[in-house]
Every structure is written in structure tokens, then in C-alpha cells.
């Protein structure tokens, strides 16, 4: 088995080097993307990855506390983006979106956070709490059911068509200079807000009483309860914080892509779960880093690796690249990039 894995690892490295070398040769012969194009790919990858990271935090926090994957978390993200659309549309109609965009986007952000938080807390209360003593597979299957329930509830309530957010102001659509790089304003804003949110969450978990409670419950629920921590309230707080992160991601999604529909949460949800696994599930900095790396893999990977093999239409294979990257990371480091090696008892 070790020999087989060793062969796979060596083969993967050779293929990676081969692909990158092919791309470099293409670039030197003037056939590949320009320097500006590479810059755009990297920035877009980081911006997309930052969103994956924010959503991944919810997966990772719930896994850390309850030990199961909440597959409905993608829909928690979608619900924020969807309600944010209606608020944005109203603000557009009353012209606040155009006259005071900062206030307007803050209101949209607030509505998105509140919605996602509320949905996450309600889902925990109705669907997961009654199953807390059940085997882990039961809430996992329930979460898939909740995911579809939320999707089709939103489809029934608001229709299936894509809802388009109003256009952002020109300042966000034009490029701004940062360290000599010309970066699109909206992407820079997304990255800045995502990083600030991630740092805020890290400080919340590390420095506040609620954060300490969350960490204690994640460590051992029974001992935490004996120490006077209200486990139920802490679990609700975990879902609420994860939901709030998804709400922020919903607004950032709107800034980047402007379209939201009832299935908007599905693929980003899967990708965010992948990011959480990539970074080491249960580890918050790992989820953040996993998200950014996954965004970079799927943004830059197809052009950087696959184009070197002369494969046409490589951008269509970005999901292949992203999930292959996940497989490779797990082959090289089965616990994820920042995950801890678990004991046999914990793995069970």
C-alpha cells in the first residue's frame, strides 16, 4: 500500500511539473495568457476562494462541535444572498444604491447576515437538535434533506429565475492600483472584507467567552457541561456564527457575480466543504486557507497545468482540477493541510 501511494505521489509530481513546464514553454513562445491575464486569474481565484473560505468556516465549526457535516450550509449561504437581493433591489428603486452605495451595501450585508443566521439557527433547532443522540449518519442524511427543502422552498416562494443584483458603482467596476498591480475594485473589496471577517471570527473564537465555550464544547461536551457551559446555547451560537459567515459570503457573492437563484448554494457549498476538508476539517484557520487555496487551484490550475498538455477548453475542467487537488492533498497529507492526526477513538 505504501509503495502504491509512493508511486502515485511521484507520478502526480511528475505530471504537475510536466504540465507547468509545458505552459511555461507556451508562454515563452507567446501562445499563452499575458501577464495581465495571469494577474486577473490569481486575483479572481483569491476572491472566489475567500468566499469558499467564509462558507467553509460554517462547515468546520459545526463539524468541530457536533462531528457531522451540515450539507444544508450551502443553502444557508443562498438564503442570505437571496434576501439580500430583495433588499438591494428595493434600495435601487429608492435610489439609495446609487446615491449612497456604502450605506446600501451595509444594509444588504446586515439583511444577508440576519437571514443566514436565522435560517442556520432554525435548522439546528428543528432538524438537528432532536437527532443529537443519533448516530452521525442520521443528521448527515437529514442535512441533505434540509438542503433540498430549503432550495425548493425558496424556489416556491421566489420563483426559479436568477435574480440579478443592481450594478455596483463604477468605482467597483474599474481597476484600482495596489502595490503596482491593477486590480478590479469589486474583487479587492471582496478580498478585504473576507479577510477582515475571517480575522474577526478568529479573534471571536480565541478571545471571547462564547468563543471559549465553543472550543470547550468542541473538545468535550460532557466536561464542558460539568464546567457550567450551556451546551445547547453554545451549539446554537456555533450555528449562528457559521450562518453569519455564510451571510457575509452571500453579499460578497452578490458583489462578484450579481446573480442568485435557489440553486446558487449547491456548488459553492460543495466547494466550501471541499475547502474545509482541504484545510483540515474542524480547524478554522485551515478552513480559511483551504478556501483560498481551492479558489486559486480552480482559478489558475487549468491554465497553469492542463494547458501545458495542449488540452483544449481547459477552463471547463476547473472543477476537475479543484477536486484532483483535494485528492492529491489528502494523498500527501490525509488530515488536510492544517488538520491534526486523530486517535483511533476520535476517528471512530
Amino acid at each position: 500500500m505504501d509503495t502504491f501511494l509512493w508511486i502515485v505521489r511521484v507520478g502526480a509530481i511528475i505530471l504537475l511539473i510536466w504540465g507547468v513546464a509545458g505552459t511555461v514553454v507556451q508562454g515563452l513562445s507567446g501562445q499563452g495568457p499575458t501577464g495581465e491575464a495571469w494577474r486577473d486569474l490569481v486575483v479572481a481565484g483569491i476572491a472566489q476562494g475567500a468566499m469558499y473560505g467564509l462558507i467553509a468556516l460554517g462547515y468546520s465549526m459545526v463539524y468541530g462541535v457536533l462531528g457531522f457535516i451540515n450539507f444544508a450550509h450551502g443553502e444557508v449561504f443562498m438564503s442570505g444572498g437571496m434576501v439580500g437581493f430583495f433588499v438591494a433591489n428595493y434600495l435601487w428603486e429608492v435610489r439609495l444604491w446609487e446615491t449612497n452605495f456604502v450605506l446600501a451595501i451595509l444594509l444588504v450585508l446586515l439583511s444577508s447576515i440576519l437571514t443566514s443566521t436565522l435560517v442556520a439557527v432554525i435548522v439546528e433547532r428543528i432538524a438537528y437538535r432532536p437527532l443529537r443522540a443519533s448516530p452521525r449518519l442520521i443528521p448527515l442524511i437529514t442535512s441533505i434533506g434540509i438542503s433540498f427543502f430549503l432550495q425548493y422552498t425558496f424556489a416556491g416562494l421566489f420563483g426559479v429565475a436568477v435574480k440579478n443584483y443592481p450594478p455596483p458603482p463604477d468605482s467597483l467596476r474599474s481597476r484600482v492600483s495596489l502595490l503596482g498591480l491593477e486590480i478590479e475594485g469589486s474583487k479587492l473589496l471582496v478580498i478585504v472584507v473576507a479577510v477582515a471577517t475571517m480575522v474577526g471570527l478568529y479573534l471571536f473564537v480565541e478571545k471571547t467567552r462564547t468563543g471559549r465555550s465553543i472550543r470547550a464544547v468542541a473538545e468535550d461536551k460532557e466536561i464542558a457541561a460539568l464546567m457550567g457551559i450551556d451546551v445547547n446555547r453554545t451549539i446554537v451560537a456555533t450555528f449562528a456564527v457559521g450562518g453569519a459567515m455564510a451571510g457575509v459570503a452571500g453579499t460578497l457573492w452578490a458583489l462578484l457575480f450579481r446573480g442568485v437563484s435557489f440553486i446558487t448554494g449547491f456548488l459553492p457549498g460543495i466547494k466550501a466543504f471541499t475547502a474545509a476538508v482541504l484545510g483540515g476539517i474542524g480547524n478554522l484557520p485551515g478552513a480559511m486557507a483551504g478556501g483560498v487555496l481551492l479558489g486559486l487551484f480552480e482559478g489558475v490550475g487549468p491554465q497553469l497545468v492542463l494547458a501545458g498538455f495542449g488540452i483544449p477548453g481547459v477552463s471547463q475542467l476547473k472543477d476537475v482540477v479543484a477536486f484532483t487537488a483535494l485528492v492529491l492533498v489528502l494523498i500527501f497529507k490525509p488530515t488536510g493541510l492544517f488538520g491534526e492526526r486523530l486517535s483511533a477513538e476520535d476517528r471512530a
Binding site: 486569474l41 482559478g299 491554465q303 477548453g313 477552463s315
Partner: peptide, 21 residues
Amino acid sequence: AVAAVNKGDTDMIGVLTGVEP
């Protein structure tokens, strides 16, 4: 260029970057 996206894609920067050269 004859490029392709996937149904469900939202980030088009990759495919557009491939079209640009």
C-alpha cells in the same frame, strides 16, 4: 478560440482569459 464553460459556472474569468490571447 473555441472555449467552453460548464452549466452552473459563475466565475468566467478563467474561460475569458483563455479566449483573450
